[in-house]
Design a protein around this nucleic acid. Structure first.
Lengths: 232, 232
DNA sequence: GGACACAAAATTGTATACAATCATCTGACT
DNA sequence: AGTCAGATGATTGTATACAATTTTGTGTCC
């Protein structure tokens, strides 16, 4: 990143920087599913023309973070329960094997970086900034994919993590609060020990935990999509 | 598809239709890795402005079918040997499990459609149109992903199949000619029998066969990228 | 003859202008 | 009062115009 985290990349933002800024805002739940993303509005915010804003929105649409309907514009995507299941099933297919590879390849500096992620995440939680904690929690997963040195799979996981953020915004059950806490830490330990089998198994169970901490009953989806349809 | 296969969608082509036309041309090896894709040129061919052409190119860039370098334009991607390995490793991770799901869910009409694909493929081979045969061979794989009813994974597989077409254009060994022939047919049989285990195993070995039919020695990559650099 | 510098051409990046479509509001009619 | 028709406004889709950059061509100097 070339500029510090959140502030609007002031003048002459590029298409990618805008996409990244929006992506971050979505990750951190600062903008929620269904939010309309008007082109003129964004163009003014970032000090560029609609041309470049449109490119950003198209990028985000391709990773399913926003929905673009012809002549109706872009809005933050609202995954259905079906899509939510698909996303987590895809993660359960990709990430455990990737964690295994990461365990084989992780270097000391990789481990250090992951531990920094975890402590940043805890710091964000202490600072009552759950959005940022969620974002960092996602980064943890993409970082493991990067360590596994499979750029192609890593990019898939990156989009799945991003979409998971939307899914969590829509379907997370408050009851299942202390979700992970030590799940990530145990994973780092397995990676540090180069224990491939355990890394794979910990990642699988961690994802199953996340998946089952969602309320994906059909009723819920219906009501949410209804409210969605009504609100705009 | 709204218009018949190949011919240039004559007037008022849309961004998606252009992307699909280019994608098809790449699939069929009518345009090869490294080919420059000038915006003005494409704009004139499809009878639209550069605006929509740029959107098409951006779409293709996102699935790694074309490379866009700032101020240097778009060209058909030339995957490296590393990327080639990554793509096939990703396929070997995703597709066998997906074939298993497809075996569980395949309907009679699904099976019929797959058999039609195979016979079309053989017809294309008999008509000395190997490009089209390759395209149909790829469609076979994406069709199985669709049958498995995992749209998210299916879209991943779709991009992997597309990139595989580029990889085959670059690294296919002529010697290993009669690649599959009956591999697809055996897979359809397993799906028809709802034999999940066999479908998964056949898909895995099929992909391993494809992967090992590539010449991915480093030397090869170097020479190809060099020729690439020289040719344009 | 070769190398460098500068200029011209071509190509891409961005902004703006115009066209098309959708949303909203007004008003007449039943 | 309610409903439908038409008009107005806002928003997106596309084309064009201009700016920035790279590439190519030419001429001069060594």
């Amino acid at each position: 990143m070339t500029h510090t985290a959140d502030s609007p990349p002031p003048p002459h933002a590029t298409s990618d920087s805008i996409a990244q800024a929006l992506s971050l805002a979505i990750h951190e739940h600062r903008i929620t599913p269904g939010t309309k993303l008007g082109e003129d509005e964004l163009a003014e915010i970032y000090g560029v023309s609609r041309t470049v804003v449109r490119a950003s929105l198209q990028t985000l649409a391709h990773i399913k973070l926003v929905n673009i309907k012809r002549h109706k514009g872009a809005s933050v995507a609202s995954p259905t329960t079906t899509e939510a299941h698909e996303v987590f099933e895809a993660r359960e297919l990709l990430e455990p094997r990737t964690a295994r590879s990461a365990a084989r390849l992780a270097t000391a500096s990789d481990i250090a970086k992951l531990e920094r992620h975890i402590s940043d995440e805890h710091a964000a939680l202490d600072a009552a900034d759950p959005g940022r904690a969620l974002y960092l929690s996602g980064l943890f997963h993409t970082e493991i994919a990067r360590i596994a040195q499979q750029a192609t799979i890593a990019s898939f996981i990156e989009t799945l993590v991003a979409r998971s953020s939307l899914i969590i915004a829509l379907y997370w059950r408050r009851e299942s609060a202390l979700c992970e806490k030590h799940a990530h830490h145990a994973l780092v330990q397995a990676l540090a020990d180069q224990n491939e089998q355990q890394a794979e198994e910990l990642m699988r169970s961690h994802l199953v935990d996340l998946h089952s901490a969602l309320d994906l009953r059909e009723r819920n989806a219906r009501s949410l999509s209804l409210r969605d349809a009504l609100s705009q």
